[in-house]
Design a protein around this nucleic acid. Structure first.
Lengths: 273, 273
DNA sequence: GCGACCGTCTCATTATTTGAGACGAGGTTT
DNA sequence: AAACCTCGTCTCAAATAATGAGACGGTCGC
């Protein structure tokens, strides 16, 4: 399959292009060409052409006055398709709504992407939502409830890969900072069926998370309820576990049903806007 | 039926890869390899390797049981960066909130991408939002308020390009279906400073839109208020024009201020989630 | 068991990417 | 002002990576 795992970068021209895309996205602001150059191993001309091609494809935008590059809007249309087709969010929406209304705390829906937590949807009580500002966001897996809940239900090879991708950055005094500790925690999570975040990512923030699994145990994503220590204890959160588990089960069921429509019902013209 | 948009490859390997990405996204559902093959001019092996590379990069996902491909989650993280950096949405958010609260109708924020309208944010009164389900969505420019408002403020070469990209599909009896008609309409829009959608996209749906322009007249995007004929008339909508214009001006001002921060501030660590 | 289809893979050919360096336009320093 | 940078852009021979006809083995339907 994949020929040889280059330390980074990846396969062929496309891999390089995506690496550049990531590089640009990694800066939180429009970047100059020279800044990219400083961060990249590619020679000047190569990087230049790469950036130019990406710009011409709309994956990057180039502010010609300011001479800066930023991720392009075309990514948003593609991401919209990804959100629709590859994420749990469309299917999970009603269940998230219900859950958020029932419990009155923040609810997250996440999936695993390259060893990281990718949030695909979110509900904040009484606060109108913020679209892309939350969906698409990524976070660490080793210190979040959804992250650990998902890692706990990977099979061995996938888990090894994912663990190797963790930064183990210490966000708070409670953060688990090594692979052994994480694996121990994951075993416990697997045993009890849910994961806590004990202020491991942010001080004062705790959460309980459950995995979303198919009937045959394949990992789809995770669901969490977040609160603050001032308002709730871990024991409080634990009482929510049944509700979470049920919502997760419903999401899994709907996903499986939705992903395998009877072959009769295919191609329908859908409306836009 | 599904996307036919044959951008005929474009430049180099990257162009082909993006074309495949678009092709996959164009189907509204996971697709088999053979389906892609039927829609693509690339020979079997070429398409195969392309798809495989994209999958290995996470831009596509491959459901190995079902043997289908779908856009990958990695697109969402990239799009999140695009949303943050290249779209007006983060800056416009408070203004959209205010506008939506003031007027009690649906508000759209859009930008132009490849001649199409790309919605980057939206407010629906009293309805919690839906994240990616709306942002990232694309629509036609020739028959929407935001589309026409933006086209009207392009310079000649950009306008020519954009007009050439229109499908001029007749959505309703009121849709403008040819370039000449559209250009006439655009002249009028330019003169009066706002655009109507007179049930041109969907029967019963009308809207008023204004462009968002920089101080020097460069087009940034557009802002619209949508309603239904049962509730409001075009004349009603026209009374909202001043409020819209002011919101647009504020968004433009904030955008210009935000895009040119004093050079003192470099890389700062930001919080996640 | 037969035939058709499908996804995967090979390998010589070819086209595309590569990258050191040239170049000119600003800006800054001396 | 002249000399000196730095930056973005572009060129061209060399080399690498993409190409695509066709082979291969599996699966499904009959």
């Amino acid at each position: 399959m994949n020929a040889q795992q280059a330390p980074q970068g990846g396969d062929g021209t496309i891999g390089k292009a995506v690496a550049v895309l990531d590089l640009v996205a990694g800066f939180r602001r429009p970047v100059r060409f020279s800044e990219l150059r400083a961060q990249s191993d590619y020679p000047k001309a190569t990087l230049y052409r790469l950036v130019q091609t990406l710009t011409s494809q709309g994956l990057l935008t180039h502010d010609s006055e300011r001479q800066t590059y930023a991720p392009g809007l075309r990514l948003m249309r593609l991401a919209h398709a990804a959100w629709q087709q590859a994420s749990l969010a469309p299917v999970a929406r009603p269940h998230l709504d219900r859950l958020a209304a029932e419990i009155c705390e923040t609810v997250h829906l996440a999936q695993l992407d390259a060893g990281q937590v990718l949030y695909v949807d979110k509900r904040v009580p009484e606060q109108p939502v913020e679209m892309f500002s939350q969906a698409g966001k990524v976070g660490p897996a080793h210190c979040t409830g959804v992250g650990k809940a998902m890692l706990a239900h990977l099979d061995a090879p996938a888990l090894d890969k994912a663990v190797a991708l963790q930064s183990f950055y210490r966000f708070t005094p409670h953060t688990i900072t090594d692979a052994a500790g994480l694996r121990a925690e994951l075993a416990e999570i697997r045993a009890q069926g849910f994961a806590f975040d004990r202020e491991e990512h942010e001080p004062g923030i705790i959460c309980i998370a459950v995995p979303i699994l198919t009937g045959r145990g394949r990992l789809l994503g995770a669901l969490s309820v977040t609160s603050v220590t001032a308002r709730k204890s871990l024991a409080d959160l634990e009482t929510l576990a049944p509700a979470l588990r049920e919502a997760a089960a419903r999401i899994a069921r709907d996903t499986e049903a939705w992903r395998f429509p009877d072959p009769g019902a295919a191609r329908e013209g859908e409306k836009d806007v």
